[in-house]
């Protein structure tokens, strides 16, 4: 394989990280919490899609919709039950709760589906495209296209709609947002809904590219997407997208040219270096409070 094909598959992997990272970063921006259960929402989304496609024999589009819907409901319910009562608790209590929810989801999946990985049927019809003498798989192309489309829709939603503006307002100043008549609780719910919906899309793409699913499927991509969000500057939407793609490329190239065993270490090493140089990440907010 050539450099170009590694690069493209890095972009594709990175697009998946970016979709997951958006969930982390939006929730952080608005609810000011790290939702460590986000990775496991991905895994649940994968299982829902798997069950719908393989067990129920539903058409692919319907299965994807069911998976998205299931993740949205799951995300909103998790927020209502586990995080909302802790809205004014210390960040540490919320963090521990999030880790608890993460293990809960993993164990529920273990209980229902068992620990053995199941093979996932790709949702992308089999095709490939020749580009510059390199064959690019359908999954790669669809993943990148879907990610680009989602990012465009998301930025239109956030910048052009009333609910999107409300999200921006809440992320900047909850109190002032309330004074504008914005319902902070429903804005937070909406954020969890969007983040979890994106997680479902990411899960279907992830399980199509690496065609299997286990209760731990979400853990590593979740951590890496979180890394991408921090790398890009947590709370920043462009940061999460660029962070995700850059991370995917680094991972893909280091697997190809350095060592596939070391690739994760390299990814996290880059994060550490970035944070040493720019503690707020690539697009992180500077602290420019006006007195």
């Amino acid at each position: 394989m050539s450099f170009f094909s590694y690069f493209v598959s890095g972009i594709s992997l990175g697009s998946i990280y970016a979709l997951i990272a958006l969930g982390y970063t939006m929730v952080y921006g608005i609810a000011k919490m790290l939702n460590f259960a986000h990775g496991d929402v991905i895994m649940i989304g994968g299982y829902v899609a798997f069950t719908a496609i393989t067990t129920m024999q539903f058409p692919v589009w319907l299965s994807i919709c069911i998976s998205i819907l299931a993740c949205i409901i799951l995300g909103v319910v998790i927020e209502k039950i586990a995080y909302k009562p802790l809205r004014n608790a210390t960040p540490l209590a919320i963090l521990i709760t999030a880790i608890g929810v993460s293990y809960l989801l993993q164990n529920v999946a273990l209980l229902i589906f068992g620990s053995a990985a199941k093979s996932f049927t790709s949702v992308v019809p089999k095709f490939s495209v020749e580009l510059g003498g390199v064959s690019i798989t359908g999954e790669t192309i669809v993943t990148i296209a879907v990610a680009v489309l989602i990012v465009i829709c998301l930025s239109i939603f956030i910048n052009k709609t009333k609910s999107g503006r409300a999200m921006l307002a809440v992320s900047e100043d909850k109190g002032a947002a309330q004074l504008m008549g914005i319902n902070v609780n429903s804005t937070i719910s909406l954020t969890f809904a969007i983040g979890s919906g994106l997680a479902a899309v990411a899960s279907v793409l992830l399980c199509s590219t690496y065609p299997q699913i286990s209760p731990y499927t979400g853990a590593m991509p979740g951590i890496k997407a979180f890394t991408a969000a921090v790398f890009g500057g947590i709370g920043s939407i462009p940061g999460a997208m660029i962070g995700g793609v850059v991370l995917g490329i680094i991972e893909s190239l280091s697997k190809a040219y350095i060592s596939s065993e070391l690739s994760d270490a390299i990814v996290f090493g880059v994060l550490i270096i970035v944070l040493l140089v720019r503690p707020t990440g690539l697009f992180g907010k500077k602290f420019n409070e006006k007195v």
Binding site: K162, R165, A166, L168, A169, E172, D173, G175, A176, A177, L179, M180, G181, I182, K290
Partner: peptide, 18 residues
């Protein structure tokens, strides 16, 4: 407590949110 990252116009629009 204006919304620092938004424009003046966007801030005013948020004032009429309801």
């Amino acid at each position: 407590r204006i919304f620092q990252e938004l424009t003046v116009y966007e801030n005013l629009q948020l004032g009429a949110f309801i």
